[in-house]
């Protein structure tokens, strides 16, 4: 008698467990959004300047267009596939507006040295897979290959921001991203040389001019246009109120190893 009672409660317990089991099995474990939402530097590879830059630009873009660009870095994928991780995270964060699905995710996995740009449904028209791949090759991978993660992410962010902003006719001020890949076009190379000379002259001028001042670090490879200037957006006063708009992704985008 007692035995059957124990059995019964055992089965009941197992039954209860099975009720909860599917939930814990289905959901892959990804990182959760930080309070800043647009910037989630779990691998700790980004500088404060980059984070602030991305924060101010992404939140301004979101205010005007509802489009959201989110940067996530993680130390490791822990055995998950990059693509599945990215899609799961994209949906968990709810990047982009729930109706327009105009979200964009830049995800970097440090240990695996993999990078993925995941595009929400609504942006697939302006950012087809091949284009996101080419943009990564041009603006990000050359830096990432040299462990220059901060600059790679920032430069890529600028490039993708530009695409999204121009699609919405959003006048967000952003510096030109640097194109790293060599073009075969001779004329282009010639112009490039001229620019390089111009830059060199400019730096020499700066060095002499700023001899005693706090000269800016010689960041060769910085942006050609708009020296100074900076972003005109201040951090919103209501800080901490950033969250996803409930957007979704169907798995569009492209991945790269570096």
């Amino acid at each position: 008698m007692l035995n059957s009672k124990i059995k019964k409660s055992y089965f009941f317990f197992v039954f209860l467990l099975t009720l909860f089991l599917p939930i814990s099995v289905c959901a892959m474990d990804t990182v959760s959004p930080t309070d800043e939402f647009y910037i989630n530097d779990y691998a700790d590879i980004l500088s404060t300047e980059t984070e602030e830059y991305i924060m101010s630009h992404s939140s301004a873009l979101n205010q005007e267009t509802k489009a959201q660009i989110v940067v996530v870095t993680i130390p490791s994928l822990e055995g998950n596939s990059l693509e599945e991780y990215a899609t799961t995270l994209f949906r968990k964060f709810g990047i982009g507006d729930s109706d327009e699905n105009n979200g964009l995710l830049l995800l970097l996995a440090l240990e695996e040295r993999q990078m993925r740009v995941e595009v929400g449904y609504g942006l697939e028209g302006i950012l087809p897979d091949a284009k996101t791949g080419r943009m990564q090759d041009t603006y990000m991978i050359p830096y990432l290959k040299e462990d220059n993660f901060d600059e790679g992410i920032l430069n890529g962010y600028k490039a993708f921001f530009q695409e999204v902003a121009s699609y919405y006719d959003f006048s967000g001020e952003i510096e030109q991203p640097v194109e790293e890949e060599n073009s075969d076009d001779d004329a282009f190379i010639f112009i490039f040389f001229l620019l390089e000379f111009g830059m060199l002259a400019f730096f020499i001028y700066l060095i002499f001019y700023n001899r005693n001042g706090r000269g800016r670090g010689m960041s060769v490879g910085g942006s050609f246009s708009s020296f100074g200037g900076g972003s005109s957006f201040s951090r919103g006063s209501s800080f901490g109120g950033f969250s996803g708009g409930g957007g979704s992704s169907g798995g569009g985008g492209s991945s790269r190893g570096f």
Binding site: E84, P128, D129, A130, D137, G250
Partner: peptide, 27 residues
């Protein structure tokens, strides 16, 4: 080859969309 890189990206993207759609469908 640029053409090949683009096609690979499109194909990889499509494969991933299929994988995502498959998961959603099975669910």
């Amino acid at each position: 080859n640029q053409n090949f890189i683009q096609l690979s990206d499109e194909l990889a993207g499509t494969e991933n969309r299929i994988a995502t759609a498959r998961r959603d469908y099975n669910e």
